[in-house]
């Protein structure tokens, strides 16, 4: 390979390095909404220690973050805000929809909730559960890392 197409090899390597860098320094925006946010906070603190994956720094400003963990139910009043925060995030950016409510509206199929945050922003990973335990969220995050590294979700 290297002898036949050196340029190609170089490109792949940089791409890989870039992907690796992306996964290893992901800054989540703190977008806690409801019960799931408490589990997200628990994931970030000492017992579960999200810093093992280089992402314990929850950024307050969307401008400094590249992952949005939508943790909790999204109401009709919150949806425009959510979209604005998403738009303010610099590319490349990813979204994890955490919990039944963010993914589908959960048990609240009524006038007040957006039935799934994917109606407002594109979602990469759905983490099921009500609330998903910190382990589930970590699995979601690792799956996202896989997705970024391989361009697809590894089985």
């Amino acid at each position: 390979m290297a002898t036949t197409a050196p340029g190609n090899l170089l490109m792949t390597t940089i791409d890989k390095a870039a992907r690796w860098a992306k996964t290893r320094s992901m800054f989540p925006a703190s977008f806690g909404l409801a019960c799931c946010a408490i589990e997200m906070m628990a994931t970030g603190t000492a017992h579960y220690d999200l810093s093992r994956f280089g992402m314990e720094v929850f950024r307050a400003s969307p401008r400094q973050s590249d992952l949005m963990v939508v943790a909790g139910r999204v109401s009709q009043k919150m949806a425009p805000v959510l979209r604005q925060v998403y738009d303010q995030m610099p590319d490349p950016k990813w979204v994890i929809s955490m919990g039944a409510c963010a993914s589908t509206g959960g048990m609240f199929n009524n006038y007040a909730l957006v039935q799934g945050v994917d109606q407002v922003v594109p979602v990469d990973i759905y983490v099921p559960g009500c609330p998903p335990g910190p382990q589930s969220l970590m699995h979601g995050i690792l799956t996202l890392h896989d997705k970024i590294m391989n361009g697809e979700i590894a089985s």
Partner: peptide
């Protein structure tokens, strides 16, 4: 407030 209004009182009636 109201950014997390979930309509739980309505759901409670269902």
């Amino acid at each position: 407030i109201g950014y997390l209004h979930t309509g739980m009182e309505k759901t409670g009636e269902q």
